[in-house]
Nucleic acid binder design. Structure first.
Lengths: 222, 222
DNA sequence: CAGATAAGCGGACTAAAGTCCACTTGCAAA
DNA sequence: TTTGCAAGTGGACTTTAGTCCGCTTATCTG
C-alpha cells in the first residue's frame, strides 16, 4: 500500500465528465498520489484531524492542484468511498436477485437491505460524515448527495414492488417513506446514536425492522 | 421590533450557569444589542449570509465580546430560538393536557405533536440548520442538541404511555423509535426534502402519520 | 519533429472563524 | 466615597478553507 515505487499503477483511466477527453497522465498520477496520501493520513490521524493543506503537502502537490480535483474534503472522501460503494451496490444487487428467486417477500428484502446499510454506514461513518457535512452547504450539493440518492432509489423501488405485490397498501407515499426510513442512517445522526445514546448496530437494525414491519398494516389516511 | 429607542428594556436577567451570579448591567445590555442586531441582519440578508464579524460590527461590540457570550453562530441562533421553543413547548403541553382530558389515544396525540413540530421546523429551519451544523462538530455539542433532546423526551414518553395503554406492543424499543421518527425532522434533512424533493408540509406530515400508525401493529421481533 | 494550445501545476493571497490578552468598568464591601 | 477585583471589552493575531493566476508540460496536429 505504501510506495516503494509507484510510477505505473495508476488505477482506472478517468474521463472529464463533460467531453470524453482522457485525463492527462501527470494529472492521473497526482490524483492517485492524493488519494493514497489522504487514505494514509486519515487512517493515521483520523479524518477530522487532517486538513486539505496537510494532504497537499504530504502528497507533494500544491493546494491548487488538490482543489482542482477535489473541491473540498467531502469530495475527496466521496472519491475514497467510490469503490466501496460500488462493491456494496453490486453485492446488494446480487443478493436481491437471489432473494427474488427464492421468493422472499419484498418487505423482507427491504429489511435485509437496511441491515446491510446499517453495517455499511457504521464501517464508513467517518468518511460519510465528512461527505454529508459538505453536502449541507447551499452550493452544488448534487454530487455529494449521490449516496443518499441511490439508497433512496433502492428503498423506494422495493416499497413500490411491495405495494404491487400486495404486501403494503398501494396508497402509501413510497417516495416519502423511503426518505424517512433512510434518515436515521444519515451519517451524523447514526454517529450520534452510537456515541451519545450508546445504541448497538443490532438495536438500530431491530428498530428499523420494526418501522418497516409496521408499514404492512399502516393506514395512509391517518 | 425595530429600535426608535431601546435603552431600558433589556429582557430577563441572566445568570452565570455555574454560580448564581447576576450578569453585569453592561454585559446584559450588550447581549441584548447583539441579539437584536443578529435578528435584524438575519432577517435582512439571510442567516447564511451573515457572519460573526458582521454581527459584532453592526452591534458595535468587539469580536471578543460577541464570542464571550456565544461561542459560535449556532449558539447565537439557539438563543434567538429560545423564547419560541419555550412557547412551543408550553403550547404543546397545554394541548396535550386537553387531549388527555378528552381521552384521545396516545398515538393520536403523538401524531398531533409531530404535525406541530413539522410546522415549527418549517418556520425556523434557517436558524435550526445553523444550530444543527454546529452541533455536528466533535466539541461540546450538548448545548446545541437541546432541541432534539426535549423532542425525544416528548416522543418517547408518548410512545411509552401508548404502550402502557395497550395501543402498541410493550416490546417496542421506544427510545430508538422516538429517535427514528424525529430524524426526518432534523433541520437539514427537512430543508432538503422541501427544496430538492419539493415535498409540501402536508405530505411530510402525512408520511409521518403513516409511520406512526404502523406502530400499532408493528412486530418488535421482525 | 515542431509548434500551438489547453490542461495542469503550485504557492502567494484573501476571507472567515475563533483565540488571546492588555486594558477598562461595574459592583460591593469597608 | 473609596477601593479591590472579578467581569467585561475590543481588536490584533492565528489558523484554516478556499481562490487566483502566471508558469509549465503533455498531447495533438501538420
Amino acid at each position: 500500500m505504501t510506495g516503494d515505487d509507484e510510477p505505473i499503477m495508476l488505477g482506472e483511466i478517468h474521463m472529464n465528465e463533460d467531453d470524453g477527453r482522457v485525463e492527462r497522465r501527470d494529472a492521473a498520477a497526482n490524483r492517485y498520489k492524493i488519494l493514497q496520501t489522504a487514505e494514509r493520513l486519515f487512517a493515521a490521524h483520523g479524518v477530522g484531524n487532517v486538513n486539505m493543506a496537510d494532504i497537499a503537502q504530504a502528497a507533494g502537490v500544491g493546494k491548487g492542484t488538490l482543489y482542482r480535483r477535489f473541491a473540498n474534503k467531502g469530495e475527496l472522501c466521496l472519491a475514497l468511498l467510490d469503490t466501496q460503494m460500488a462493491d456494496f451496490q453490486n453485492g446488494m444487487l446480487a443478493r436481491m436477485q437471489q432473494m427474488n428467486i427464492a421468493g422472499l417477500p419484498k418487505l423482507e428484502q427491504l429489511q435485509q437491505f437496511m441491515d446491510a446499510l446499517v453495517y455499511f454506514t457504521d464501517t464508513h461513518s467517518p468518511l460519510l460524515c465528512e461527505v454529508q457535512r459538505e453536502g449541507l452547504l447551499p452550493l452544488d450539493n448534487t454530487r455529494l448527495q449521490l449516496p443518499h440518492f441511490w439508497q433512496h432509489m433502492t428503498v423506494s423501488a422495493l416499497l413500490r414492488t411491495a405495494a404491487a405485490a400486495g404486501e403494503i397498501s398501494p396508497e402509501l407515499d413510497t417516495d416519502y417513506l423511503a426518505d424517512a426510513l433512510l434518515s436515521p442512517l444519515k451519517a451524523d445522526f447514526f454517529q450520534f446514536q452510537k456515541t451519545n445514546r450508546g445504541f448497538t448496530l443490532e438495536r438500530i437494525s431491530a428498530g428499523l425492522r420494526t418501522l418497516i414491519s409496521g408499514l404492512r398494516n399502516a393506514d395512509p389516511e391517518s
